Computed example of a mutant assay.
Amino acid sequence: MIEKTLKIPLKMALNGIKIDYAQVYALKIPLTEPFNVANFNQVEYRAVVVELHSKDYVGYGEGATSPDVTGETILSEFENTKFILSALAGKNYESIEDLVTRMNGILYSNTTAKTAIDMAVHDIYCKDLGIHITKLVGGAIKPMLTSYTISIESLKDSLREVLEFQKLGVKLIKVKVGTDINSDIEKVKLISENLKGEKFFVDANQGYSISDAVKMGKVLEETNALFFEQPLGRENLTALKELRKKISVPIMLDESIGSPNSVINAILTEAADLINIKLVKAGGIRNAFKALSVAQAYGIDTMVGCMVESKLGVSAALAVASSLSNVKYSDLDGNITIKRQPFEKGFTFEKGANTAMAGYGMAVDKEMKNWK
C-alpha cells in the first residue's frame, strides 16, 4: 500500500529532455513468506518509487530499503529523496553523469534514495531515445543465470525449497546461513546431498566469528560450494584477509562493498576473491557500473545482486549485469516473494535464467492496482 506520496515541481532539463515534475511514493507490500537472514527478518517489500514526468514520458525508479545494509528506513529515504529532487530542480544537466555528480554532492551516502532517482533518470532518458536500458549501458539482451535463495528456515523447509527450485529449472542456489554454526553445517550438507547438478554458494550476512567461518569454510570445501559470501562483519577487512589464508573456498564480499572506493579498499586489503555489487549500495546504475569497472581493472570477478525489490529494480540490475565481462554471477530473484507485483514485464525467467524483455527503458509496466 502507499504509505506516503508527494508531487515535486522540477522544471529541469536533461540533455534536452524537459522534466516537469516528480511523483514520489513510499510503498509497502507484504511478502508471501518471511525473508530471514542472519541479522534481520523481512516480512514486506519496502521501497520509495520515483516517477519523473516529461510531456511525453514517465521514467520509473525504485530504491528498496534495507536499514541494516544502507542505514535508511522507508521514511528517511522518502524525505531524502524529496530533499535531493528539490535541490536538483530548476537546472539544466548536459548528461546523466552531470546530474548524478550533482546528486552525489547534495547529500552524503543515502544510496537507496539516490538509486531511485538515478534509475528514473536512466529510464526516462532511454525512453526519449527509444532504446532499451541494456543498449545505454553497453550490454545485451540475453539469458543470464540467476541464483534463487533459501533463507534461514528449518531443514524441512529448506529441502522443500530445493525441490521447488529444481522443478523451476533453477541452476544456482544461494543458501543463507550465519546463525548457529552446527545447524548451518547440517543444513549445508543436507542441501548439497540433494542437488541434481545445481551449483550452490552460501551467504552468512556477516553472521560468523572467524572460528565459525573457518568451520563453515572447511565444509564448503568438502561440498564443492562455489564461494562463501560475507562470512564476517563489513568492517573486518583484516580478519577477512586472514580468513582467506585459512580456507580455500573463495570469499565474496557484499555488505563491505558500496562505492567504487570501497571496491578498491577491499582489493588492496586482500580481503576478497569476488565482489557483489548491488545498485542500492552503490547509489544507482551509474555508480554500480563504475564499481564493476574498478573490479574489472583489478582482475576481480563479480556478481550483481539485489534486495527484496520489484521487477523494476531487478530489470535495472539485470541490464548492468549484462554490461561487463567480469560479471560471472547474478543473484536477481528479489521480486519472487512480493505478494502483489508493483511492476510487471521487464524480464522473464526460464530454465534458471532471467532474460530482459524488449521495450524502452526498463521495459516495465506500472501495476497501480497492486499498490492498494
Rank of each mutant, 00 (worst) to 15 (best):
residue 231 P to S: 00
residue 273 D to P: 15
residue 149 T to D: 06
residue 135 K to N: 05
residue 124 I to S: 13
residue 339 K to Q: 14
residue 201 F to I: 06
residue 193 E to K: 15
residue 17 I to T: 11
residue 237 L to A: 11
residue 290 K to N: 09
residue 77 E to Q: 15
residue 370 N to C: 00
residue 52 L to T: 09
residue 59 G to P: 03
residue 264 I to R: 12
residue 362 M to A: 08
residue 73 T to N: 06
residue 70 T to H: 02
residue 37 V to L: 10
residue 334 G to V: 00
residue 251 I to D: 02
residue 89 A to E: 02
residue 336 I to F: 10
residue 244 R to F: 00
residue 16 G to P: 05
residue 43 V to E: 13
residue 94 E to A: 11
residue 295 A to I: 07
residue 302 T to Y: 08
residue 335 N to G: 11
residue 318 L to P: 04
residue 245 K to E: 15
residue 19 I to E: 09
residue 80 N to C: 15
residue 98 D to F: 14
residue 257 I to G: 03
residue 279 L to V: 03
residue 199 K to H: 09
residue 51 E to A: 01
residue 355 T to L: 10
residue 230 Q to W: 07
residue 83 F to I: 12
residue 73 T to S: 13
residue 112 T to S: 11
residue 98 D to G: 00
residue 180 D to L: 14
residue 205 N to M: 00
residue 259 S to H: 03
residue 21 Y to F: 12
residue 203 D to A: 02
residue 130 G to A: 02
residue 147 S to V: 04
residue 277 I to H: 07
residue 97 E to H: 07
residue 317 A to R: 02
residue 14 L to K: 05
residue 30 P to K: 15
residue 168 L to N: 13
residue 274 L to M: 07
residue 308 V to Y: 07
residue 341 Q to C: 02
residue 201 F to N: 11
residue 296 Q to R: 13
residue 372 K to E: 15
residue 91 K to Q: 15
residue 144 M to E: 03
residue 100 V to W: 06
residue 6 L to H: 08
residue 338 I to C: 10
residue 150 I to M: 08
residue 202 V to S: 14
residue 129 L to M: 14
residue 137 V to W: 05
residue 265 N to H: 14
residue 52 L to K: 03
residue 316 A to P: 10
residue 53 H to R: 04
residue 309 E to G: 12
residue 125 Y to C: 00
residue 55 K to Y: 01
residue 309 E to Y: 11
residue 89 A to V: 02
residue 74 I to K: 01
residue 231 P to Y: 02
residue 270 E to M: 02
residue 208 Y to H: 03
residue 264 I to A: 14
residue 372 K to Q: 12
residue 165 F to D: 08
residue 280 V to D: 03
residue 196 K to M: 06
residue 322 S to R: 01
residue 47 A to Q: 00
residue 154 S to Q: 07
residue 14 L to V: 04
residue 24 V to F: 08
residue 162 V to R: 08
residue 140 A to Q: 09
residue 133 I to D: 01
residue 30 P to E: 12
residue 251 I to G: 00
residue 192 S to H: 13
residue 67 P to W: 04
residue 56 D to S: 11
residue 74 I to W: 07
residue 367 E to K: 14
residue 3 E to T: 09
residue 357 M to A: 04
residue 143 P to I: 08
residue 115 T to S: 05
residue 100 V to E: 13
residue 268 L to I: 09
residue 60 Y to Q: 08
residue 71 G to K: 11
residue 353 A to Q: 01
residue 239 A to R: 06
residue 187 K to I: 02
residue 82 K to H: 05
residue 220 L to P: 08
residue 316 A to Y: 11
residue 203 D to Q: 10
residue 164 E to M: 01
residue 177 V to R: 10
residue 262 S to G: 04
residue 368 M to V: 12
residue 149 T to G: 09
residue 310 S to Y: 04
residue 152 I to D: 08
residue 185 I to T: 00
residue 291 A to C: 09
residue 208 Y to I: 02
residue 280 V to M: 10
residue 297 A to D: 14
residue 271 A to E: 01
residue 48 V to Y: 00
residue 176 K to H: 03
